[in-house]
Design a protein around this nucleic acid. Structure first.
Length: 437
DNA sequence: TCTGGGGTCCTAGGACCC
DNA sequence: TCTGGGGTCCTAGGACCC
């Protein structure tokens, strides 16, 4: 049981949630005036809709839609590739604007933030609602995109507010009016309540956010786990989630996955994908100066069921060369010949700062230092000449696969030409470096 | 949203220890 | 050897989010 009471923060608080409207598409329209007022879609490179402008949404374009369907409902749609660097710049500028109003800004995602306004009425000589209006006006004027804002006593209520009226909405939910808003919101629309919990709540006869908030605390505590007890508090105006202003610069885990269609039974190809995942995850880990103590690898079958294995590492590391042996062994523990897989994934877990990594008595320190230097050089080369200038040989099959697109059945021929003279062990386990360029 | 990629946190249950 | 109580650590898996 859960005998620890939840901590309610001193209240009432004034928390703001800001959410950019159709963010990616809006950024495109802000930079390219000729796109304004038109149905704009981003995500060209992936073949499915990443974001759609409100003009496109009005014509029935939805996230994740394929372009064949897009053209059906909206033939005049303008489809552009996603430009994450530009969107990140807009994001940074939005957060900078928010910090002019309050130092307590939580960068929740690329297009969302929470701001703690508590106590700022004095310095701005106006109500919280008017501060929110100024924020909205400033972002829209300086960035040329529209945003929706919610202000209330807790993060969950503020988030419900920003969603309540979109786009370009501003919804203030004072304590005395909470019930008016919650009555109109289905419980599954509340932040943190997913399909599973809403199905369960429906069985208890709870359908709206208000019915959930009005449910006796004992009932909530008896049936639901901590995260949902917290949401219950927040919906009742009691703030339990603080605005986390420290910019997060680290990770608990780093994962890389790759889906391939159609699913493949080709062992070399599947392992190659996995190997590439590992390299990419390690690159990211090194960029943040992190080292993993745990390596999880998993494969997803055709039917979307996952099979995986977790491996403990002798020494925290972010060097693929040190991990390939484990990767290969783990792979053969979960891989079954003849079964088609549609995805491979690796997770580097229990990350710790690289400078805190300790050597044990048994480590070959000279070797490890040398490896560190090699990877340092690789990272520098990649920075100058592009990602994957240098790759491990075992990651290469994924490239071959791409070149051989269209004659995927020709695995035997591919092996013969590309891996002539190598045996399977070498192909899969070889920790040698291979220059691509 | 029958399924893309990257994350976080919580809980139950087993192993092990005193 | 058995019994009882209690703590800690780890793992697997669930649930949710953007």
């Amino acid at each position: 049981m859960n005998d620890q009471p939840l901590t309610i923060r001193s209240w009432p608080r004034a928390l703001l949630h800001i959410d950019a409207d159709a963010f990616f598409a809006s950024c495109e329209q802000a930079i390219h005036p000729e796109l304004r007022g038109k149905p704009v879609i981003t995500g060209k490179e992936r073949g499915i809709v990443a974001a759609a402008s409100y003009e496109a949404k009005a014509r029935g374009v939805k996230r994740g839609m394929g372009y064949v369907d897009v053209k059906k409902v909206c033939p005049e749609a303008i489809i552009v590739p996603s430009d994450y660097e530009t969107y990140s710049l807009f994001s940074v500028r939005m957060f900078e604007i928010l910090r002019r109003f309050s130092p307590d800004v939580e960068e929740y995602s690329i297009d969302e933030a929470f701001v703690d306004l508590t106590g700022l009425r004095r310095s701005f000589h106006c109500s919280y609602g008017m501060i929110a209006e100024k924020i909205q006006e400033t972002v829209e004027r300086e960035l040329g995109i529209t945003v929706s804002i919610g202000v209330s006593l807790s993060k969950v209520l503020a988030k419900a507010g920003s969603k309540y009226n979109k786009p370009h909405g501003l919804t203030i939910i004072p304590g005395r009016d909470i019930h008016i808003y919650l009555e109109k919101i289905p419980v599954e629309k509340i932040w943190g309540i997913g399909p599973n919990t809403s199905a369960f709540l429906n069985k208890l006869g709870i359908r709206t956010a208000l019915e959930f908030a009005k449910t006796d605390e004992e009932v909530i505590q008896k049936h639901l786990s901590k995260p949902f007890q917290e949401i219950w508090c927040e919906l009742n105006g009691m703030s339990v989630y603080p605005v986390a202003a420290e910019s997060k610069s680290s990770y608990q885990s780093i994962s890389k996955t790759k889906t391939f269609t159609p699913p493949s039974t080709d062992e070399t190809f599947v392992f190659g994908q996995l190997s590439k995942n590992l390299e990419n995850a390690c690159i990211k880990a090194r960029r943040y100066n992190l080292a993993a103590t745990k390596l999880i690898i998993f494969l997803r079958k055709k039917d979307f069921r996952d099979i995986g294995i977790e491996l403990k590492l002798n020494r925290p590391t972010a060097y693929p060369a040190e991990l390939f042996e484990a990767l290969r062994k783990g792979f053969y523990q979960i891989y079954q010949a003849g079964i088609p897989y549609r995805l491979t994934g690796v997770v580097l877990g229990t990350l710790r700062p690289e400078n805190r990594v300790q050597f044990t008595l048994f480590d070959d320190t000279a070797k490890i230092e040398k490896m560190g230097k090699i990877y340092h050089s690789i990272d520098e080369l990649s920075a100058r000449f592009g990602k994957h200038t240098i790759q491990h040989a075992s990651s290469l099959p994924t490239k071959m696969q791409i070149q051989h697109e269209g004659k995927r059945g020709d695995a035997a021929a591919r092996k013969n030409t590309l891996f002539k003279g190598e045996n399977r062990r070498q192909r899969l386990g070889m920790p040698m470096l291979h220059m691509k360029v």
